[in-house]
Computed example of a mutant assay.
Amino acid sequence: MSQESLKFKSLLYSSHDSKDCTNVLKVHNYTPNVSADSSIVLRTLAFPINPSDLNQLEGVYPSKPEKVLDYSTEEPSAIAGNEGLFEVVSVPSGVKTLKPGDRVIPLQANFGTWSTYRTCDKESDLIKIEGVDIFTAATIAVNGCTAYQMVNDYIDWDPNGNDWLIQNAGTSSVSKIVTQIAKAKNIKTLSVIRDRENFEEVAESLENKYGATKVISESENGGKEFGKEVIPKVLGPNAQVKLALNSVGGISCANIARKLSYNGLMLTYGGMSKQPLTFPTGLFIFKALRSHGFWVTQNSKDDPENKIKTVNEVVKLYRDGKIISPKEDARTLEWDVKNASDEQVLQLISEGIKTKGGKNIVVLKW
């Protein structure tokens, strides 16, 4: 790819807005100040719009890219987006593990994925992805790795026992992957979801399609009689509830913690209720409750090799049919690279940011 043909279009930001993060985004066209002879050139195939991306634009996320003057802008800027799928366009001499046509994802966050093209200096900063669709590959680094590491990296499971995990936000993308990974390992799952009119329909889908063992409502999760009378029958004899996965916080977190067995572990990876974690004191004294935070971004920084291993393991689960592609649940936003105006691109992304419920994935039409 010649230097003259390197024309990039990226969604940049140079400031933050905690109330409406679409205000800080702008579409910028430029020629990168790198040579195609010295950098790996990538074209973007798809990227999700994740909560962490929006938190970065709002200025409230702990991990954020450095704002630089590399994009021919008047003030230091960063390219939005942490996660996405790319196709290798060209590689400089000396690159051994990649070739044009390979599909890759960034090893680390803050890569700047909301762009038509990107460049990368080191092949070790990319993970090759094969044998899965673009929706799976574009979302595997955050949701897939989060689910896999929480299930696999903290608990010594007994595949022949009656081992359980409990989680709130049972309809979330991560929770659906958790139940499928757990089922493949013979771990039973108790998923808690919000009370709703179509509860039975949603519960049936989570159980039959996504492998949850049992789905209960938040009101049942908090009911004392339900906890005493029904939950033991659901769990069965000699049950060990070893792990609780919390992405809600508040009273929901306390209620799933109560169902943990002795020396059980609570992992918190989100706080959708924006309420603090509250635990009954007796859980720590009499049940030896352990509580830790989980952040896949930091895990990837601390142990890049485990991130690569995790991606490969999750890809295998998708290939083997153990996890369903997120395509069915995704809201696809098509970016027509050749025909869409800058205003249309910005409108498309703004729509994805503001439309709630379900995963928004931008797919680039080349």
Rank of each mutant, 00 (worst) to 15 (best):
F86P: 00
D158Y: 00
E220G: 07
S63N: 08
E197C: 02
S93E: 15
S291D: 03
Y61Q: 09
V192F: 02
K188L: 03
C21T: 06
L42R: 00
F294Q: 07
V27D: 02
S217Q: 02
P106H: 09
K327V: 07
G271I: 06
G59V: 04
A138F: 03
G270A: 05
G211I: 13
F8G: 02
S10Q: 05
E225N: 08
N306F: 12
V315T: 05
G94H: 10
N339T: 15
S191K: 01
K26M: 15
L364N: 06
V314C: 03
G293F: 08
R196F: 04
V192S: 08
A288Q: 13
P280R: 07
Q344D: 11
L317A: 04
A203C: 06
K316M: 07
S72R: 02
N255T: 07
L364V: 11
L235G: 12
S273A: 12
S124T: 06
S172M: 01
L260G: 06
T297A: 13
E351L: 15
E197G: 14
C253P: 02
K224R: 12
T278M: 06
S191H: 01
P237T: 07
G236W: 06
Y269D: 09
G131F: 04
S38P: 12
K359Q: 12
N162I: 08
S2H: 13
H292L: 15
Y269F: 12
K322G: 01
F279R: 00
A254W: 00
G250Y: 01
G270M: 08
Y13W: 09
Y30G: 02
G131Q: 02
F199E: 00
G270P: 01
Q56W: 04
F294G: 01
V142S: 10
T332N: 03
S350H: 11
E130H: 14
L98T: 08
I251G: 10
K338Q: 15
S93Y: 13
S252A: 12
I349D: 14
Y269H: 09
V174N: 04
V174H: 07
F284I: 09
F284V: 12
K309A: 15
E351A: 10
S93T: 14
V315K: 03
I105M: 05
D70N: 10
S261K: 05
N143D: 13
N143G: 12
G250T: 04
D329K: 10
T146N: 04
A239V: 04
S63E: 15
A138H: 04
G112E: 13
K309R: 15
S261E: 05
V362R: 00
S72A: 13
S261N: 00
A257V: 06
K259F: 10
S300R: 14
G223S: 14
T332F: 03
E75T: 11
N50Y: 02
L283R: 04
H28F: 09
L107I: 11
V89S: 05
